[in-house]
Design a protein around this nucleic acid. Sequence first.
DNA 1: CCGATAGTTCCATTATTCAGAACTCAATTT
DNA 2: AAATTGAGTTCTGAATAATGGAACTATCGG
Lengths: 300, 300
Amino acid sequence: MGLCQGVTASMGATDGHIMDKNAMDKEAMDKNATDKDATGKDAGADKRETGTLGKLMLLLDIVTHADGPMRFTDILAVAGQPRGTLHRQLGHLAEEGLLEVLADGRYAPGLRLLDLASRSWARNEFRLIAEPHLNALQQLTGETVHLGVLCGASVIYLDKVEGSQPVRMYSQIGNASPVYCTGVGKAALSALPDDRLDAVIASVSFQRFTENTLTAETLRREITDIRRACNAFDREEHEVGIRCVAAPVYSEDLSFVGGVSVTGPAYRLTFERLEEWALPVRKAAESIMSGMRIGLGPRR
Amino acid sequence: MGLCQGVTASMGATDGHIMDKNAMDKEAMDKNATDKDATGKDAGADKRETGTLGKLMLLLDIVTHADGPMRFTDILAVAGQPRGTLHRQLGHLAEEGLLEVLADGRYAPGLRLLDLASRSWARNEFRLIAEPHLNALQQLTGETVHLGVLCGASVIYLDKVEGSQPVRMYSQIGNASPVYCTGVGKAALSALPDDRLDAVIASVSFQRFTENTLTAETLRREITDIRRACNAFDREEHEVGIRCVAAPVYSEDLSFVGGVSVTGPAYRLTFERLEEWALPVRKAAESIMSGMRIGLGPRR
DNA sequence: CCGATAGTTCCATTATTCAGAACTCAATTT
DNA sequence: AAATTGAGTTCTGAATAATGGAACTATCGG
């Protein structure tokens, strides 16, 4: 129902950090193993049958998540597909511009993706609605403002408004980060009904980024607080020295579940400051939500 | 061989402007007609067989190129697929997160694309190599600097460095623009051998954007000049009031063919100015190319 | 309540993909 | 120089998934 059920393959590697080669291999191997189980008897709880496309997307994920161009053999090792098959599949992906074949035969993500994504982003209704409110919030706080949306067990950043520095575009936008250690992620989770919340938590593999990173249990507990306060905080849980205040943003039918946040360095975002900005962030979230009701309502 | 042979479907609509609904329908209809011809006897000069993937990508293109979410029926009308088939295909795309199903059942481009593209962009070798040179050029001129790459018959902007204003990210990056009326596009063309150049020109449908927009013939002639001068200019050929100077950037084996440009308003970019900056732009292009030889060479 | 219009499900037929092996080509080793 | 390894490509019957047509189920406007 919601958006982005395609949790399928992009999980696990979505921690926003560059993985090393080994981690990559292991991860992809696991995925493959899971796949084979499913073939035998459709083991998983939720069945997702995307046929050919699913397999191709898995390959695309392998290549885009790697930390550099991959040789045929490298992909072969992690894709668990017979040589001939893989060869044709990669050929098709390359033909469509989703993969790029380098001069030395290695594979890299293709540029076609850029075109597709830029359109996807430019026309995104939620983003368009939120934009002015994000700007206002940035003006008020002077710090970086983010808009993120829950996508499976990750948060994808839809927009970012940063003071005035020549922003490295794409720097954050489009990046997938783990739910459990970002303000936006936790805010988003707080909007989910318990069953979906549990499903997400169950599907996440918790990784410890800093001393304060939450675990499944502490996250579960914190969600209760967030629901009450309508504010989530990131107290250096993802990166030392970075804090943020967030508030949930979601559509009535939960087809959109995300959040807004104000992020900054710990020395500026003292705990008092965080508290001080909790209200404006919440207000901004509410404005966006009412904008969504107006903007999206009439058409139905 | 080169990159981005996936010219397939994204053509025609890549003019960088938002089409109105009618234009969209007509355009897609044509595509469909062409497709049917091909089915009968594989009419096209170049055969591209991407099987199932090709069909799905066509759908993805239809949806991403539309100017808003599309209903099932809208897609049905332009996709020329039987109802049942289309239903399943859209289902698969949605399942994978490539399309998003709105609450009212309409289809919009999915967020998965953002994640894929952001990785594709972040790791793009050419972009990384060019980055410092683009910055330098921006510093020198104070105007907006672009890096674009030829992809089929379009130019895709890979990077953009703009003075200091809070850049609307994605604003241009990832966008596909026509080759024949952008400085980068013409510069890129000038680097192609005649046969490939002719192929590209043949595949473009020329559209008149301003009084100065080139036609197939004038373009062909101008390419000769560009080759000699190693500089391309856009004299308000795409948009009135916008001019630019560009220079070609390409790898030795032509796996990368693109260009750098400095763009700005006509009142600042007088013809004298353009001439003045021609050299620095060319220098920047050369620096990038030598960077590519060093950066890309060793690994082969 | 009826007739449209919009979307979904089913299933025999058909076309694509699969998987494994055989093959080419180049770089190393003996 | 011949043999060996590693990397990539091409071929094939067998298996599987996609196709397209029709029948089915909403949902809406009058």
